[in-house]
Nucleic acid binder design. Structure first.
Length: 551
RNA sequence: GCGCCCGUAGCUCAAUUGGAUAGAGCAUCUGCCUUCGGAGCAGAGGGUUGCAGGUUCAAGUCCUGCCGGGCGCGCCA
């Protein structure tokens, strides 16, 4: 329906231009939006305002010309049109056209909402990528929820999505972890050994050391060469911690296609290769004994060292190699979600990606802001320094996976999040996740109760009330919501939308009886209810939240 | 000091990226259960969108300057 109006409108505008011999300005488009507020039709457009400037006519006059052109065509796709607000055009659909979307929803079922917006475009979404030096924190949890939901949404929008975790299993932090475990190992065997400076103080480090002694029966590492022993401790620690992290992902329904190891970049000489690529492109130079990347060519505020005068690489070097790998693997679009501590690192990595051949618009590096937990109105202290973790696992064990995922994604990821633990645990009306799930369960139970099979053979004209119209309008927006969330890389839009769907349904449900003596009306309302169920179910699935049939 | 982000109802946030009368949830108050799930619905109060200018038919949104807050600024990772 919308498509038909869009194309008709586009041709009319085209004609207005050619009739006056005016070139259509680049980027001129006719946008149709659901109007704000009630009684303003089913769609509206502001195109008359845009046109009036070019045609040098008053907006209302231009709007009148457009409506006249619509009427001239005959076979109008809408029931009627109105001008208001000095130039906005409202389109009012015929009731049966409006309702036809619920037939389409029923037929598409699980596919409803999907589109070919992304058309098989290869996109790699890198998220979490936490150093495997300890259990996952709340901050990582939010990144996981946001990233995973976005992947699901992008897939629904037609993209060819690859979810990847960059595993920092090399470098200084790993070495520190290994030596921390080594120190605890000594301690457990009765030898005094201080933790390295800035070492990892968490109890889990001791636990890993204990496992090495008790489970692996390795109480003899002291006898061999120390560097081998430390290496063993490091490898064992990473393996253990990654198994915790992967357990968290499984519980949280977070999926990764691949864990990309930093170590392999060194093993395969990829870092040298990447720097060679940059050198050939002329983006490297030497100064004061160090090797520099000229990131200022791409808007960074200073150039960056990639290889120190000591001969060691900086952190940027393997990162460049990693992103070259993305490029060489054929990903056309990059999405990276980072924690706020990496904020200042964005310009140089953007620069690197551009130097490697990515156009600026293909690179999306977003920050997922921190979460503050609240209990009884007070912020919960989370101290990593003292080795006191508030881990992701503690959170989802306490409030449940559904609430955790919903709360993490319900706000724009770039805004810091206040997470109310009491609210998330509440099994009541105040809890937004239950509000959505309740709507789904209510419909599921209704459909069972009705004892009547849902059919598309219904008289859609019977769904003529205001509440039915609003619900149908809301359901019809699902595909474009997914596209909007994809385009803006903002899963929270979907969470917000689903709340609207649930609200529209609850309202419809409380105003109208579904199952009545009137068989035809019952059929129509059951189909509408079923379409709502499908949208809620598909939408919740995209957020990784379960869709209970009963609660 | 330089750079980026933010400032919207008592609180947490929206506002279709420049559109119409700035909207939701929570909190407060008032109603609605003899029938499909009340984990629901209806209604009320609450705003000079930090301040002052500017651009525009149209500004919470863009520009300039203040005020207030956050973050980043290493041959660290």
């Amino acid at each position: 329906m919308k498509f038909k109006i869009e194309t008709t409108l586009a041709t009319i505008v085209e004609k207005l231009f050619t009739a006056r011999g005016i070139e259509k300005p680049a980027g001129f488009s006719c946008e149709l939006h659901p109007p704000r507020g009630a009684g303003r039709g089913d769609l509206s457009t502001n195109v008359a305002f845009k046109l009036s400037k070019i045609l040098k006519k008053k907006p209302a006059e231009t709007a009148g010309m457009i409506i006249a052109a619509f009427e001239e065509l005959g076979d109008s796709p809408v029931e009627r049109m109105e001008i208001a607000g000095g130039g906005f055009i409202y389109f009012f659909f015929r009731k049966k056209d409006l309702g036809s979307v619920i037939v389409a929803i029923h037929q598409a079922d699980r596919r409803y909402g999907s589109s070919d917006y992304g058309k098989g475009k290869k996109v790699i979404v890198e998220f979490v990528s936490a150093n495997p030096t300890g259990p996952m924190t709340i901050a990582h949890g939010r990144q996981a929820a946001v990233g995973d939901s976005l992947c699901r949404i992008l897939k629904a929008a037609g993209y060819d999505v690859h979810a990847e975790y960059y595993l920092n299993d090399a470098g200084r932090q790993m070495n520190l972890l290994a030596r921390s475990v080594w120190a605890r190992y000594h301690e457990l065997l009765g030898h005094e050994m201080a933790l390295p400076e800035d070492g990892y103080k968490g109890e889990y480090v001791r636990q890993i050391a204990r496992d090495i002694i008790e489970k692996e029966k390795k109480d003899n590492l002291l006898q061999g060469p120390e560097d081998k022993a430390i290496e063993y401790c490091g490898a064992y620690a990473v393996e253990t911690i990654m198994s915790w992290i992967k357990t968290d992902f499984a519980k949280m329904r977070v999926h990764f296609d691949h864990y990309f190891s930093e170590k392999t970049l060194y093993e395969k000489k990829s870092v040298e290769h990447a720097l060679e690529v940059l050198r050939q492109k002329g983006f490297l130079f030497e100064n004061e004994g160090a090797l520099w990347f000229r990131s200022t060519d791409f808007g960074d505020d200073k150039d960056r060292v990639v290889k120190k005068s000591t001969g060691e690489y900086t952190y940027l070097a393997p990162d460049i190699a990693y992103h070259l790998s993305k490029y060489e693997r054929g990903y056309e679009m990059l999405v990276n979600f980072w924690g706020p501590d990496h904020h200042g690192y964005i310009p140089r990595l953007r620069a690197a990606c551009q130097a490697l051949g990515y156009p600026p618009e293909a690179i999306h590096i977003g920050i997922v802001q921190l979460t503050t937990l609240f209990r009884e109105g007070q912020p919960v202290r989370m101290s990593t320094r003292a080795g006191e973790f508030v881990t992701l696992r503690e959170l989802y064990d306490e409030v449940g996976v559904d609430a955790t995922r919903f709360f993490f994604t319900m706000r724009r990821q770039e805004s810091p999040l206040d997470f109310d633990l009491d609210l998330a645990k509440e099994r009541s009306q105040e809890n937004p996740v239950y509000y959505l799930q309740y709507a789904h369960a209510r419909i599921a139970s209704l459909l069972k109760f009705a004892e009547e099979k849902v059919t598309t053979e219904v008289d859609l004209g019977l769904l003529s009330s205001r509440e039915e119209g609003e619900l149908i309008g809301c359901l019809s927006q699902f595909p474009e919501m997914i596209v909007a969330a994809s385009r803006l890389l903002e899963p929270y839009r979907l969470a917000d939308y689903l709340r609207q769907v649930a609200a529209c349904f609850h309202k419809f449900y409380s105003f109208h009886r579904i199952v009545t003596e009137d068989k035809d009306l019952t059929k129509a309302r059951l189909l509408l209810s079923d379409a709502t169920r499908i949208v809620l179910r598909n939408g919740l699935e995209l957020l990784g939240i379960s869709q209970p049939e009963s609660m």
